[in-house]
Design a protein around this nucleic acid. Sequence first.
DNA 1: GCTCTTTTTTTCGAGCCTCGAAAAAATACT
DNA 2: AGTATTTTTTCGAGGCTCGAAAAAAAGAGC
Lengths: 413, 413
Amino acid sequence: MSVGIRHDDLRKRNRAMVISAVRRAGQPSRTEIAATTGLSHSTISTISSDLIAEGILAESKGSEPALLKRGRPQVGLALDPGAATIVAVVLSLNSLSAAVIDYAGNTIVAETRRLVTQRMQAEALVEECIGMVRRLTERCGEAAGTVLRIAVAVQGVTDSGSRKLLWSPITPHDDIPFADRLEREFGVPVTVENDCNMIAEALRWRDPSRYRDDFIAILLSHGIGMGLVVKGELFTGTQSSGAEFGHMIHRPDGALCRCGRRGCIEAYAGNYAIWRNARLGDENAEPLADLSDEDIIALADAARDHDGPEREAFRKAGEAIGFGLGSMFALFDPAPLAFVGVGATAFDVMEPYVRAAIAKTAGGTHSRAISFDTMPNEVPLIREGCMMRALLYVDDEIFAPGTALRRAQAGVA
Amino acid sequence: MSVGIRHDDLRKRNRAMVISAVRRAGQPSRTEIAATTGLSHSTISTISSDLIAEGILAESKGSEPALLKRGRPQVGLALDPGAATIVAVVLSLNSLSAAVIDYAGNTIVAETRRLVTQRMQAEALVEECIGMVRRLTERCGEAAGTVLRIAVAVQGVTDSGSRKLLWSPITPHDDIPFADRLEREFGVPVTVENDCNMIAEALRWRDPSRYRDDFIAILLSHGIGMGLVVKGELFTGTQSSGAEFGHMIHRPDGALCRCGRRGCIEAYAGNYAIWRNARLGDENAEPLADLSDEDIIALADAARDHDGPEREAFRKAGEAIGFGLGSMFALFDPAPLAFVGVGATAFDVMEPYVRAAIAKTAGGTHSRAISFDTMPNEVPLIREGCMMRALLYVDDEIFAPGTALRRAQAGVA
DNA sequence: GCTCTTTTTTTCGAGCCTCGAAAAAATACT
DNA sequence: AGTATTTTTTCGAGGCTCGAAAAAAAGAGC
């Protein structure tokens, strides 16, 4: 049962409100913050002067060219870039990248390298991550603030505590304890996040008007992933990162999926499935390990150009996605959708089939109103979401509690 | 964006904590409440003496026969039955029942009558409800406290604001504004709730150890309904009461469902579907409007007794439920399940097929660990959930804000 | 250049709320 | 009857937010 509210929680929460208002709005004045938070001017004044004194916020002078308004000009408050630093690591099939990012969200240094992830030992993967983070942090040296958080985004299923990679298509190994290993190495809290969840996180910062309280991000790539925001919160499982849309069942005992089971949506709509249907015409053929973007683009072009096995393959893919969405929409009502990844470039080919399938389901009552959005490149979204994840942690768990907590921690240490 | 916390919200929340602790524990002492809420003894003391002065709580004397412990004996706090009264109305196929219930959850008066709901006008349905509530409240007269809330549980889909019945199998009419009509009549806040959601609400009070933060209630009846609790909260849609498990798609373009679409889980696992498969062997036959409990029990007996069309019908039903659950478990991890309703008496026949199907899905990784529970009679659960719904509203929205809010409301009125 | 107006920000005292410590209350043990 | 033990209340201290008033900072008007 949820616990009572103490007196000091009050200040903590209101500090969090102020920080979050600044992160969202960019350079709001104290008056604006008072308006958005509903707190009084005096409270905002006290809290923000505390935050400035602690080096978390800073008054942003001179940037605004004076709005030509009468009266005392507003002073914008901004996040102090030097307040902290975080590291965002993105690990995907055959590629590792990382960036050191300041508290205001500016990238200080970044690096990307290719790896043959599927042939590496679990420990080697972890060590590559550690190595890259170490190189980058040493490269910025003392110039940057202290690193307060490391977030790792990985393609695959993570546990609900964001500590381990439970399963991933990028490696044959299971249960890789990224968080523990990196924490031991750097002495900083670390989380491992699912890539699609990070895409969802990024979308709400990219376009908060469209992606606010309820929306769905679907990654159309070699596999099918999903990031789901329900009632303003990222929807994760109780034990895993959750929302494995690609492994909902489209046809019981149907096509062979990469996961070894049959009839999953992915077994019809994943890149390998589309290729398999178009080229081999055998939905039970062993899934390919990888497929280039060009291959999928070529298939889509062929499907656009003429009727044939390619179009049929995309029809099956669209149908699988549509019926899957329809089933989802039976559980929670339709929401705006973003299709992300290479597959999104071919979404125009699938869309009619997706809509037709949704219309055959209970969720399809308002299928006309369901709006799709496509964004071909998932990489910057994953990076951005990963960064926001880490920054929000610093906001809420380190800076909002403020000195009270830091004193308590010091007492323990 | 969520709003900052004012100073008075604090007291409001802590009052809510105390009330909720008492409702949960029955007769906790102040010391126990302090322990469960994490608030200090002095705070609990002040709040509870306020609540007693307001007539919300009462010290329960003499009930406990003195625990033979040394020291000042604990004084149990209990909800004052006379603090308020609520009305719980349950409307289902051909039956309407209602009860006036005191603040401690004791039924004061109750009534049930049969109606031919499918042949009634929408307005007649509403008027039957109004009539019954009026009769009952007049019957208790001034003996009982003021009615502060009316909750109506209906089989069917309601809107997310719990104001209207959007669709229901018990009537051909749509969009029936129960809440507005009853509010106008009685001048008391009213909600219309989905029956399966009420079953879920009831389960968490019946057995909080098993049904706490994540669980699923499935109503196996003429149709298939679901009540879902995720992370401690009833999961509802953004626009509707949500969780229409019965209308997830089991087989695209498959059997004819009562809803007019094809391949829904209900079209295989609803009573009418099982009967249709067993007796007609035609999954596209027009669904029956109703079916007696005895018919289903007879089918189950036949299925237990010998192989044949009955067993095959239950196999198909179990498979549909299993694959459906597997798909759900792809989205959020497995949780304890309760099967409620007549269909639950036949669940032993379906269980092996349910488990076999789940095992073929991604959610089935731990299918062994998934535990099923069956409760044949849904009626008392719906009643109980409906009651709790109304009482919790009084707790949280009326008594927790206390005089502060009541004064503000008086100012407006 | 000086004063007036307008808007933002800070200051200050009042009013709540929670907490810890100490006191009071109520009972069993000896 | 006195002592030990446990629960509950009381009381002062410390925090927090709020509203009102004051201070600050600029444009507008003359």
